[in-house]
Amino acid sequence: MISARELVPGIVAGHKRAIARGLTWIERDHDRGRALVHLLFPRAGGAHIVGVTGAPGVGKSTLVNRLTLTLRSQGRRVGILAVDPSSPFSGGAILGDRIRMQESVMDDGVFMRSLATRGHLGGLSRATFGAVTLLAAAGFDVILIETVGAGQSEVEVMQLAHTTLVVLAPGLGDEIQAIKAGILEIGDAFVVNKADREGADQTARAIRGMLSLSRRDVAWVPPVVKTVAEQGEGIEELVDAVNRHRQYLDESGQWAERRGALALHLIELAMGDWTHRAIAQAQRNVDWSAVMEDVLSGGADVEELARQLLLQALKGRNHEP
């Protein structure tokens, strides 16, 4: 059995097998996966992490395929993480994003991995954070993260990405009003894909109108780019917008700030992991139905109970859930 330390050279050299195996360890969340992320984190600072989010069916996968081809033509190595939902019933998943990425993924300068959410909310999988670190350390210049088909609140990608692209399709019209909070607030650039369809201009106008009303950052005006990803139209303009955003982040000092914000989010996620472990451990070790009964009858103080469970998990220092 090889150790995390032994896998590092292969990953840093960009060997596909080592990268793939490392990603599996991270997904399975065992000690070696965590050790690997820890070892690779110092090497992961250079990659431009670009999130691609939007409702199901707007063409995210096709867009990622086209973005990859254009980035490759500029000589940049591209890592792709595509997240699809796990079934809440069986835990299984169908990961179909490769279907639309066939043109780009055969290239040696591209590595693409499909991830299932495995119960994680927010539009990503828990493993996405470690997976990005690994791909960045493996020397990919740009890492594209395709979220699950997102609704209004799957906004976690902004915690991870330097640049978030929000993809829409024409014909939303008034719906833009309804979704202006949440996902429309996180775009560093907006993409109106399928722009050969009727209503593309209205949709673009509606987004611009919304942006003029509320902006997080007055110095960066998120561009609105019309694309027809299927035909490759508008992709160069979009890549140009992505590159300009990176330059803006560098010059404004936000590149470093976002890295700080990511560190904080990683700590929060790891704390969440301890919570899950505490509950799993308690379910193994105590009469859980009695605990539940105690809570429901009003006998137990939930706050105090939570504190005790966490303390026990931390005392055990047991990494394995």
Binding site: K16, R17, I19, A20, R21, L23, T24, S86, S87, F89, S90, G91, G92, A93, I94, L95, G96, R98, I99, Q102, V105, M106, F111, M112, R113, S114, A116
Partner: peptide, 28 residues
């Protein structure tokens, strides 16, 4: 397979042997 709790990567029609093996490699 999904309903049996497995994660299924599906790559669509018309795959070459090279594409398939590359997908096996990357998706582990």
């Amino acid at each position: 397979l999904r309903d049996a709790g497995m994660e299924v990567v599906y790559t669509g029609l018309h795959q070459t042997p090279e594409q398939i093996v590359d997908a096996v490699l990357q998706e582990d």
